[in-house]
């Protein structure tokens, strides 16, 4: 882990504030565009969310989520087009099923399913993207650090 960041984090944690690390998988057509729009509109949201681009939310293999949690993410956001709006016709419906499955899987592993969130964010919904980033960061902050972090059960 990077020294500087570790130092800052420790500082904050000693102040009692937990700063979670959150990974976001955003579909390129809607949610990634919304993230760009939030940027262009200069909307501020917590820096805890790090986003990654996928072409469609259906590309998000449950393995990605588990990998992220094992590698230290405290929460994982998956965002795609609204139901009915998928650029690939109905990929987001498949994403919805995969996320539902992943949540149950996490539950059986003893992890809070709330650490994974699926949101529909349309290309025009920059404000919503910022809102989701805020809300989710706050939620994960309440949940506390991910207990599976570094756990070697794979």
């Amino acid at each position: 882990m990077k020294v500087e960041e570790e130092r800052m984090k420790n500082e904050r944690e000693t102040e009692g504030v937990f700063e979670p690390k959150i990974v976001g998988f955003l579909c390129y057509w809607c949610s990634y565009t919304a993230a760009d729009l939030a940027g262009v509109s200069r909307m501020k949201y917590p820096p805890n969310l790090r986003v990654m681009r996928v072409m469609c939310s259906s590309r998000v293999d449950p393995v990605f989520i588990i990998k992220a949690l094992l590698d230290g993410a405290d929460g994982v956001l998956v965002a795609g087009c609204h139901p009915g709006d998928c650029h690939y016709q109905k990929g987001n419906y498949y994403a919805r099923r995969k996320i539902a499955l992943t949540k149950r899987l996490l539950e059986s592993l003893g992890l809070e399913p709330e650490r994974v969130r699926l949101s529909w964010i349309a290309a025009s919904e920059g404000p919503r993207f910022a809102e989701v980033a805020k809300e989710f960061t706050e939620r994960i902050r309440q949940l506390g650090p991910n207990p599976a972090k570094g756990a070697l059960f794979l």
């Binding site: 072409m55 259906s58 293999d61 449950p62 650029h87 690939y88 498949y94 995969k98």
Partner: peptide, 10 residues
């Protein structure tokens, strides 16, 4: 193929 990646995840 449009490259959405659903098959890879499936």
């Amino acid at each position: 193929c449009k490259g959405c990646g659903l098959c890879a995840a499936t």
